[in-house]
């Protein structure tokens, strides 16, 4: 499509006689799950399981966004973000936005019910599925309203994660990643 506006018409179809919920043009079956159940899994399940769950959720969202974009490689920045943000909103994950800190790509998610351990693999997988590039993602910050995540390669994400774990502010970590800062 490549449209700069998101069209949610018939994005989700509820088949009440069959007791089914379908999303997207291919009719992927969905399951309405309470967020409390997802939180319980994220808190109790192993980290690999949580990451696998998050990537599965994100891959489904990214695939639907790619279906809307068509040729994602040539899609403008606004159009890509709009379609991806629309699918994220339909899934109930939150409001997605993008920031550029120099060359670093930072994704913002506002009002998400998911915690950081589940949100980081979800966003990474969604961008990967929508763009067709293999990406890594890590959580930079999280407060009551906004979660900020860095999307990059495996090496860069790994360094930023280590710097933040050592106590460096995430902005300084991004600056250092680009050759500046301490």
């Amino acid at each position: 499509m490549g449209s700069s506006s998101f069209d949610p018409t018939n994005a989700v179809r509820f088949d009440l006689p069959q007791g089914r919920v379908h999303a997207g043009g291919d009719g992927e079956r969905l399951l309405l799950v309470p967020t409390s159940a997802i939180d319980d899994i994220a808190l109790s399940a192993p980290a690999e399981a949580v990451e696998a769950l998050g990537r599965a959720l994100g891959t489904a969202i990214g695939r639907r966004a790619k279906a809307r974009l068509g040729d994602a490689s040539s899609a403008p920045m606004e159009a890509f973000v709009t379609q991806l943000a629309g699918e994220v909103a339909l899934a109930g994950v939150g409001v997605l936005g993008v920031e550029r800190w120099g060359r670093a790509l930072v994704v913002l998610v506002e009002g998400s019910p998911l915690n950081g351990s589940l949100l980081a693999p979800l966003i990474g997988a969604a961008v990967e599925a929508a763009s067709g590039r293999g990406v890594a993602c890590t959580l930079l910050s999280r407060d009551e309203h906004v979660a900020r995540l860095f999307v990059g390669g495996d090496g860069g994400v790994g360094r930023v994660r280590d710097w933040i774990a050592s106590g460096m502010p995430w902005a300084d970590a991004l600056a250092r990643l680009q050759g500046g800062g301490a």
């Binding site: 890509f80 060359r103 999307v151 090496g155």
Partner: peptide, 15 residues
């Protein structure tokens, strides 16, 4: 400024 999202993503992946 990169015109496409993929270009932005590639720049970020290059870090």
């Amino acid at each position: 400024v990169p015109a496409t999202f993929v270009a932005v993503l590639d720049a970020s992946l290059a870090l």
